[in-house]
């Protein structure tokens, strides 16, 4: 995943911002415990979103505790506690995604980046094995996604929808693992599907110029639109709108204010920043 699922800090209450940081720190701590302090480098806002959603769905956060940052012992911070395996699951998801992303980079990057990837890959492949053993379902879903993605990119008829489908389907399936009945499963799948689609497409919009130069695959390169930015905005808006519809049908209590903030402000402002190359407002730069 790529780090587009952000909050909009200016619209959060102070206590919500503290809680957001506490989940981020809690997840970071868990990654250190489960894998290694190095995996924390792969920690993204997307996984924080996933962890927070899990905590909220399972009502698994009984409170906060004070501690010190694992990176900077001088910095005090709060950790959101977790009764269940939400953090472990999010950490595993993060490690598995990072591993496949690295493997993918090995195929289509420049010489220096490939060299760097070769250096870190052995570590990640060990952590990846551990994560895959603990959460085999996540492993299968991400691995299938990569296969489907490669197939889609080789097909000359792949349009925007088909290109985004593997990621969207993967995230939809990952979230539906949390469902307790069929109705919930459909709602979670629909929510995950459109968020996943949005992530894939916003990443594609972000990389469009780079991909055009390097002749890499990008679904927007095949679109003939008079105004590309307007087209991207429409496609992305619609994914968010449909994700929001499904989101409305999920019962959330804990962290609802923060998740609402992301849905209503965070994602749209990130989207505008990417599509229109705007400078982001003072934002989540430092957690």
């Amino acid at each position: 995943m790529f780090g587009y699922l952000q909050v909009r800090k200016s619209e959060l209450l102070v206590r919500e911002w503290e809680a957001y940081k506490a989940v981020y720190c809690g997840l970071c701590k868990q990654m250190g415990k489960d894998y290694s302090f190095l995996t924390r480098l792969s920690l993204s806002y997307d996984c924080t979103f996933y962890a927070m959603l899990l905590l909220s769905l399972e009502k698994a956060c009984p409170g906060f505790e004070k501690g010190r940052c694992r990176f900077n012992p001088l910095k005090k911070c709060q950790f959101a506690r977790c009764d269940s395996d939400c953090y472990s699951k999010a950490a595993a998801f993060s490690v598995i995604s990072a591993y496949y992303k690295l493997k993918d980079d090995l195929q289509d990057s420049g010489f220096w980046k490939r060299l760097a990837v070769r250096l870190v890959l052995p570590f990640f492949s060990r952590w990846h094995k551990k994560a895959a053993r603990r959460y085999p379902q996540l492993e299968t879903l991400v691995a299938d996604m990569m296969t489907a993605q490669n197939l889609a990119e080789q097909n000359s008829e792949t349009g925007v929808d088909a290109a985004a489908h593997p990621t969207a389907n993967m995230l939809g399936s990952v979230l539906s693992l949390e469902a307790h009945d069929e109705l919930q499963r459909r709602v979670y799948y629909e929510f995950g599907y459109h968020i996943g689609r949005w992530i894939y497409l916003i990443d594609a919009a972000d990389d469009l110029e780079k991909d055009e130069k390097n002749r890499n695959f990008n679904p927007f390169l095949r679109v003939k639109a008079a105004d590309m930015q307007a087209y991207q905005t429409q496609v992305l808006n619609q994914s968010l709108a449909r994700a929001y519809d499904a989101y409305q049908l999920i019962t959330l209590i804990d962290f609802k204010g923060i998740l609402d903030n992301m849905m209503v402000y965070g994602f749209p402002s990130k989207q505008n920043a990417v599509v229109y190359h705007r400078q982001e407002e003072e934002d989540v730069k430092s957690v």
């Binding site: 919500e16 905005t233 808006n237 929001y244 519809d245 409305q248 609402d260 209503v264």
Partner: peptide, 24 residues
Amino acid sequence: NMNSQQHFNYGGYNTGNVNNTGGM
């Protein structure tokens, strides 16, 4: 329906139904 989704006017973005969570 497609058009309104593409322009955000759909899906509750402007319905103000989240304000019980604090100024949203």
